[in-house]
Write a protein that binds this DNA or RNA. Structure first.
Length: 479
DNA sequence: CCTGGAGTTGTCCTA
DNA sequence: TTAGGACAACTCCAG
C-alpha cells in the first residue's frame, strides 16, 4: 500500500489561488496537495490579529475553502509545533509557502524551515505579496533608503526591479487524503457581539470579491484618482487594502492590471499616482523589514522625550467619535461601523489624536489595529509614525491639520459627515464642519443642541494647536 | 569628503 | 477674495 507522499501548501497572507507562486510550485511537482491554514496567536506576541481582522479572516477562509473544493485544513496554535507534526503525520515530501514580512513571522518561519530541513523534507518559500523584495532595494552603498521618493523612483522604478508577471492558477489540483484539521467555527474568529453586522454589507472578503473590487476601481475610481482619492464623500478609492492584506489579490495583479490603462489618453498620471500608493505599501513593509522595532519605538530618537499627555477621557472621545469635531467623529464612526476609514480622514483623525489631543501614537496604533479590517503591521506603524513626525520621512511638526478646514475642503457638501453623524444631518453645509459656530436659530431648526445631542469640542482648536507646536518645538535640537 | 537640493497629503498671516 | 511666503531644522541622498 504505497501512498504517494503529499506536498503541503501552507496558506498565510495569500488567501487566493491565482498568482500564487507557492501553489503553482506545488502543483508542478505533480504530487497530491494538502492545503492548510494555521491560526497562530502564540507566536504573534503583542500583534495578535485584532477583532475586525478576525471577522474578515473568517469570511476569507470560508471563501478559500470553497475554491479548494472544501479541502482546506484549518488548525489553531503554535505553527512551529503544528507544522512539523503534520509533516510527520502525512509523511509530506515538500512544504511550500509565500513569504510574510512581519518580524515575528520571519523569526518563526526561519525556525520552522530549519527544523523541517533536519528531516528529509524540502521547504521552499516564494514571493507572493510584495512587488519588491525588501533586501533587494538599497542605495549605492548597500544601506536601506529612509526617504520614500528616492526609494520609489531610484529603487523600485529602476528597470532591473520591474515587478514579475503574474502566474495563472493551476488548472487542476489533486488533493491529498488526510484526517487533519478543525471546523472553521472552532477558530472562534467571530466575537459574540455582532458588532460586525454592518461590515458584512460593505465588503465581500475573498478572492472573487477582491477581483470585483479591482475591476470596479479600474472602471471608475482610477479615472479621477489624483483628485478623487481625497474625497471621503465619493467613491474613488480602490478600497483594496483589506484584500491586499490577506492576499486575496496580489500587488502584482493590481500593478499589472493598470498597465493597459497607462496608454489611454489622460490616464497616465492617474495610473502613476495609484501605483505610487502601492509603492507606499511597499515602503512600509520595507521599513518594517529593515527596522523591526517600527511598531514600538520612535524611529527618531528625539521623540523619546516628547511630552505626551495621559488622558483616558479624551482618548475615549476619540475612539467613540465624540470629539465634537464632525469630520473626526465621522471618521471614527465609519471605522467602528464598517471596519474601514477613508485615507484622507485617517490622516485627519490621526493628526487630531497626536497633535490636538497630544496623546501618544501608540494609542491610535492600537485602536486601528483592533478595528480596521485592513489592519497591517507595516502600514499601521509606518503611517502612525509618519503622522506623529517620529518616523522616516515624516511630516514637519508644524503640519497640523485643521479639522474644520479639512472637512470643508474634502467634504464640501458635508455628505460624509451626514452619513456617519446623523444627528448633524439637518445642518447646512456652511456649518456642518463647525456646528458650535452656527446661529442658535439654525441649530434649533436642525434639531442640534451642542453639549446635549452632539458634543461640545473636546479641546479648543487654536489652543491645542499652539500647545502642540510648543511641545514639538521642545524636543528640537535648538530647544 | 563635500555640497547642494529635496523631503506625500498644511495652516496662517499678510498684502 | 486670493496668492505668496513663513513656519525649523534636520537628515537623507546623489553627484
Amino acid at each position: 500500500m504505497d501512498k504517494v507522499r503529499p506536498t503541503i501548501v501552507w496558506f498565510r497572507q495569500d488567501l487566493r489561488l491565482s498568482d500564487n507562486p507557492a501553489l503553482v510550485a506545488a502543483a508542478e511537482l505533480g504530487t497530491p496537495i494538502l492545503p492548510i491554514y494555521i491560526l497562530d496567536d502564540e507566536n504573534a506576541g503583542d500583534w495578535k490579529m485584532g477583532g475586525a481582522s478576525r471577522w474578515w479572516l473568517h469570511q476569507s477562509l470560508e471563501s478559500l475553502n470553497k475554491s479548494l473544493d472544501g479541502q482546506l485544513r484549518l488548525l489553531r496554535g503554535d505553527a512551529a509545533k503544528l507544522l512539523p507534526a503534520i509533516v510527520d503525520q502525512v509523511n509530506a515530501t515538500q512544504v511550500v509557502w509565500n513569504r510574510c514580512y512581519e518580524p515575528w513571522r520571519i523569526a518563526r518561519d526561519r525556525r520552522i524551515m530549519a527544523k523541517l530541513r533536519e528531516g528529509d523534507v524540502s521547504v521552499r518559500s516564494h514571493n507572493g505579496s510584495l512587488l519588491f523584495e525588501p533586501q533587494s532595494i538599497t542605495k549605492a552603498d548597500g544601506t536601506p533608503y529612509k526617504v520614500f521618493t528616492p526609494f520609489y523612483r531610484n529603487g523600485c522604478l529602476s528597470p532591473e526591479h520591474e515587478p514579475r508577471p503574474t502566474v495563472a492558477s493551476p488548472s487542476a489540483l489533486e488533493f491529498a487524503d488526510a484526517n487533519i484539521g478543525i471546523p472553521l467555527a472552532k477558530l472562534e474568529l467571530l466575537s459574540k457581539v455582532a458588532w460586525y453586522r454592518q461590515m458584512a454589507e460593505q465588503w465581500s472578503p475573498g478572492e472573487k470579491g477582491a477581483r470585483a473590487r479591482l475591476q470596479d476601481f479600474l472602471e471608475i475610481g482610477i479615472r479621477n484618482y489624483k483628485e478623487g482619492r481625497n474625497r471621503p464623500d465619493k467613491a474613488f478609492c480602490s478600497r483594496l487594502s483589506p484584500h491586499l492584506h490577506f492576499g486575496e489579490i496580489s500587488p502584482h495583479q493590481v500593478w499589472n492590471a493598470t498597465e493597459p490603462l497607462q496608454d489611454q489618453p489622460g490616464l497616465h498620471a492617474e495610473v502613476d499616482h495609484f501605483r505610487s500608493e502601492l509603492g507606499w505599501r511597499e515602503f512600509s513593509h520595507y521599513l518594517l523589514y529593515h527596522w523591526p522595532q517600527l511598531p514600538e519605538d520612535n524611529l527618531q530618537k528625539k521623540f523619546d522625550r516628547f511630552p505626551w499627555r495621559e488622558d483616558a477621557a479624551a482618548l475615549r472621545t476619540w475612539q467613540r467619535g465624540e470629539t465634537g469635531y464632525p469630520i473626526v467623529d465621522a471618521g471614527m464612526r465609519e471605522l467602528w461601523r464598517t471596519g474601514f476609514m477613508h485615507n484622507r480622514v485617517r490622516m485627519i483623525v490621526a493628526s487630531f489624536l497626536v497633535k490636538n489631543l497630544l496623546l501618544h501614537w501608540h494609542h491610535g496604533e492600537a485602536w486601528f489595529w483592533d478595528t480596521l479590517v485592513d489592519a497591517d503591521l507595516a502600514n499601521n506603524s509606518a503611517s502612525w509614525q509618519w503622522v506623529s513626525g517620529s518616523g522616516a520621512d515624516a511630516a514637519p511638526y508644524f503640519r497640523i491639520f485643521n479639522p474644520v478646514l479639512q472637512g470643508q475642503k474634502f467634504d464640501p457638501e458635508g455628505d460624509y459627515v451626514r452619513m456617519y453623524v446623523p444627528e448633524l444631518a439637518g445642518l447646512p453645509k456652511k456649518y456642518i464642519h463647525n456646528p458650535w459656530e452656527a446661529p442658535a436659530s439654525m441649530l434649533q431648526e436642525a434639531g442640534v443642541s451642542i453639549g446635549e445631542n452632539y458634543p461640545r469640542p473636546v479641546v479648543d482648536r487654536a489652543d491645542s494647536r499652539d500647545r502642540a507646536l510648543a511641545a514639538f518645538k521642545s524636543i528640537s535640537a535648538a530647544a
